[in-house]
Structure formats: C-alpha cells, structure tokens
C-alpha cells in the first residue's frame, strides 16, 4: 500500500511538471500550428537561468524567478521573430526541422556555458518528510504538485477570461477572422511563444529541484509528445489529464514492472492512441485523415 501511494505521489509530481511543459507546447501548437521540438530545451534554458541567478550570483529566489521570466519572455519572442516567422507557410517537414535545429542550438549553447556535468543547487522547495497513508513522501514533491496546479489554474483562467487569452483562442480558431476583428496576429504569435517559454521555465525549475540541474532536463521535452497526443493536441484540460496519466503510468510501471520499460511505455501509449483515437481524449476531431 505504502509503495502504491509513494509511486502515485511521485507520478503526480512528474505528471504535473509534464503538464506544465506540455501546456507550453499546446499553446504554441494552438496559436501557430507549429510542433515545437525545442520545448525540452526551453525547460533547460529556464532551469539554467535560474541556476545562474540563484547559485552563481547568489540572488534571492524571487529575483532569480523574475530574471528567469524576463529571459524566457525574451527567448520566446526572439525565437518567434527570427526563426519561426520566416517559416510561415512552409511545409510541416520544414517547420518541424527548424525547431529540431533550434533545440540542437539551444542545447549546445547551454552545454558551452555550463558543460555536461551535474550542477549542485541547494533545494529551493523545503522537503520535510510527510507521511500519507503509511507512506513517507518528500515534501518537495507535494509542493511541486501544488505549484504546478496553481500555475495551470492561473493559465486556464487566463485563457477563459482575460482579453489576451481570448484573443489567443480566436487566432487559434481562425486567423483571418481574428485579423478582421482587429486582433494583432503577430502579437498573439509572440505572446504564445513567450508564455510557452515561461511555463517551461517553471517546469524547468521544479524539475531541476526534484531531480538535478543537468542536461537531462532537455530529454523531458520528448515526453511531451505522448502527453499531448493522449490529451488532444489542442486541448488545455487534455494536457493536464494527459500529463498526470503519463506521469502516474510511468511511475507505476517503473515501480512494479521494470524501470527500463517505463522509459518506453509513454510511446507505446502514444502509438495505441494514434491508432484508436488520434485526436486524443479532448482534442478537436479535425485531424487530417487519409
């Protein structure tokens, strides 16, 4: 029983962070129809920016997060303006490849400055052992779940209620109609990349805190694909459900069956979902069929 609770909480923590990372991915896909293979590198850049402020410059946590947000927003805007905007109207292959190139570039830049080793970072979240139903769980996992939940809720409300959120949804729905009612599509594009980078920053800091600051953070980016396919490529609630499901399933498989299988089980789920229900649990049934 205690193992099960343990795995469940660990899975939830992983899943919540995955959902944050995937949310940025879905944002970009919804507004700009770009599949972003560099999402993992956004996490990486976020985590290392925070590390630089917090550990190297010894700044307080809040300042570190603020600097991180600024860097993330700038990164998002620069990437959109310089790399993705010239690609508008190109084929899927080209757009996918350009984000793959971007991921290689960002990864290499981080590697140039920080090397490949693990960086020591003092714990950001306090981690008192908490016992739930007989299982002892490090408190930082629970806090990570809490923070991710808050951020996800805020972003969901932002989409539903705020002017900018509604503008973003309208562009996602129909670019030309949005333009005719006076929405600046360019600004919306820039904003979705910036927001995606910010949500990746938070995911990156949380992930770095519960695991370690090293280049493996980027490989988390590939796990985004099973999450978004499961939840539906263009659905915000879908990413949350998808993230939590993938997180929990991975932890359960890793705990009860085989840690190696846990690495590949998300992709097996992905293939099954693609074959049975390609638009995911909540996605719009607009998938291009042949």
């Amino acid at each position: 029983m205690s193992t099960a609770v343990n795995l469940l909480i660990f899975g939830l923590a992983d899943g919540a962070i995955l959902a944050l990372a995937a949310l940025g991915f879905v944002l970009i896909y919804k507004a700009t129809a770009v599949i972003n293979f560099a999402q993992g590198e956004f996490l990486l850049v976020g985590a290392y920016t925070f590390y630089t402020c917090f550990v190297i410059f010894q700044l307080p946590i809040t300042v570190g997060i603020l600097v991180g947000v600024v860097v993330a927003v700038l990164l998002g805007i620069v990437v959109e303006r310089l790399i993705l905007r010239p690609m508008i109207g190109q084929s899927h292959i080209s757009i996918i490849m350009v984000t793959i190139g971007l991921s290689g570039l960002l990864n290499a830049i981080v590697q140039m400055f920080f090397g490949t080793g693990v960086r020591a970072q003092p714990a950001v979240l306090p981690s008192p052992p908490v016992s739930i139903l007989g299982a002892t769980i490090p408190g930082n996992r629970l806090l990570a779940i809490l923070i991710a939940a808050i951020v996800l809720t805020v972003l969901t409300i932002f989409f539903q209620k705020s002017k900018h959120g509604i503008a973003m949804r309208s562009v996602a729905d129909d670019e030309q109609a949005a333009m005719t009612v006076g929405i600046s599509v360019r600004r919306v594009y820039a904003m979705s990349w910036a927001l995606a980078a910010v949500s990746a920053l938070i995911a990156g800091i949380l992930l770095a805190d519960i695991t370690a600051v090293d280049l493996h953070i980027a490989s988390f980016g590939l796990m985004v694909f099973p999450v978004v396919i499961l939840g539906g490529l263009d659905s915000v609630p879908g990413t949350i459900i998808g993230g939590l499901t993938i997180g929990i399933v991975t932890q359960l498989v890793s705990g009860y069956l085989d840690p190696g299988l846990a690495e590949v089980i998300p992709y097996i789920i992905l293939v099954l979902i693609l074959l049975i229900r390609p638009y995911g649990i909540f996605g719009e049934k607009r998938i291009e069929r042949v």
Binding site: I35, H92, L274, L275, E288, R289
Partner: peptide, 9 residues
C-alpha cells in the same frame, strides 16, 4: 491513417 505532424510523432 495519419498525415503530417501526426505521422512525425
């Protein structure tokens, strides 16, 4: 059954 982005994934 799948095209473009879905096939890539």
């Amino acid at each position: 059954r799948l095209k473009g982005l879905y096939l890539a994934i």
